[in-house]
């Protein structure tokens, strides 16, 4: 699973990562490369530095520090020596590679007319290992509705597995596991749900799924409704004004919606102007609240349309 990631790591870092024990590689979450600073690897609930001989340590003194040439090599490998082809990605600050993994980039930003043009000297890389947890959403099938689909909002702080859960829901609905199969339209603004490379989904999103990759959400939802006649629209991380307008538009067009929002609790989410309106209007009929209490993907609660808790028996932890 790590092989697409190893391909973009410079030799010195690749060797170190390869020398990690299997179990450490298995639940690796992030590899963080910062120029002249210790190489860091992140596992669920802990982060450690890594020594040149591949030991994980907490002290930064013994850690391997990649130099400038390593960072340049890494950018070369990520871009395939073709930075000009990554203009859009450099503007957004991340690149999606084969396997749907994402690499966040930092460095010196070049600004033109007050807008980010691109990142010039890339000195920080955050390799986020994308994980498909097939079946992670199976427990939620009973709450998705028997006749028609429910409109679902997944609420969670970052890194609690909401995109993983959403992706599995897409797969389940699209392939019809336990429910009638439906056409799904995914508007994947940040290439996280389907992890497209050259427009081809790298994650399993089901046979009846159409993906608009790196398309702005509000515009993408409209495009989907007009052109692809989806039964279910899936978007990640709504929150802005135009997003909620598009959501209303979609709901009135009779399309169902699965989406996510950042937040630690329902109260917090309801305070956000874009979303509070949607909640007040009763757009969503199911809410899932996630946390990281027992590792990523811990289900804290499931609510119905009027924010009443649905019995725990349905909200099983995977």
């Amino acid at each position: 699973m790590l092989s697409p990631i190893l391909d973009v790591l410079p030799l010195s870092i690749r060797r170190i990562i390869e020398s990690l024990p299997e179990r450490e590689k298995k639940d690796l979450e992030e590899i963080r490369v910062r120029q002249e600073r210790p190489l860091e690897v992140v596992h669920p609930l802990r982060s450690r530095f890594i020594t040149p001989d591949g030991r994980l340590v907490h002290q930064k003194e013994h850690a391997f520090c990649p130099g400038k040439s390593v960072c340049v090599k890494m950018l070369n490998l990520i871009s395939n020596h073709s930075l000009y082809a990554l203009e859009e990605e450099l503007r957004r600050g991340y690149v999606t590679i084969r396997g749907g993994h994402r690499i966040g980039l930092t460095g010196r930003v070049v600004v033109e007319n007050g807008r980010v043009k691109h990142i010039q000297e890339v000195t920080g890389f955050n390799v986020r290992v994308a994980r498909e947890v097939k079946g992670s959403a199976r427990h939620f099938v009973p709450i998705l509705g028997n006749g028609s689909l429910e409109n679902l909002l997944i609420v969670s702080p970052p890194q609690c597995g909401k995109t993983t859960l959403l992706r599995d829901l897409v797969r389940i609905v699209s392939s019809g596991e336990g429910i009638p199969p439906r056409k799904v339209g995914v508007v994947d603004e940040r290439s996280e749900i389907a992890g497209c490379v050259d427009g081809v989904p790298q994650h399993e999103v089901g046979p009846r799924t159409d993906v608009l990759d790196s398309c702005p959400k509000a515009e993408g939802m409209m495009m989907m409704i007009r052109s692809m006649s989806p039964d279910l629209l899936v978007v990640d991380e709504i929150g802005r004004r135009e997003d909620s307008d598009a959501v209303f538009e979609a709901i009135h067009a009779g399309v169902h919606l699965f989406t996510t929002a950042h937040g630690r609790s329902m109260e917090e989410v309801c305070r956000r102007p874009g979303i509070s309106e949607l909640v007040r209007e009763g757009v969503f009929s199911r809410y899932i609240l996630l946390s990281r209490r027992k590792g990523p993907g811990t289900v804290e609660a499931v609510y119905d349309q009027s924010l009443n808790r649905i019995p725990e028996s349905l909200a099983v932890r995977r």
Partner: peptide
């Protein structure tokens, strides 16, 4: 470019 491991474009 394809086979050398992350060597700069200039070197190639």
């Amino acid at each position: 470019l394809k086979t050398w491991d992350g060597v700069s474009t200039f070197e190639c």
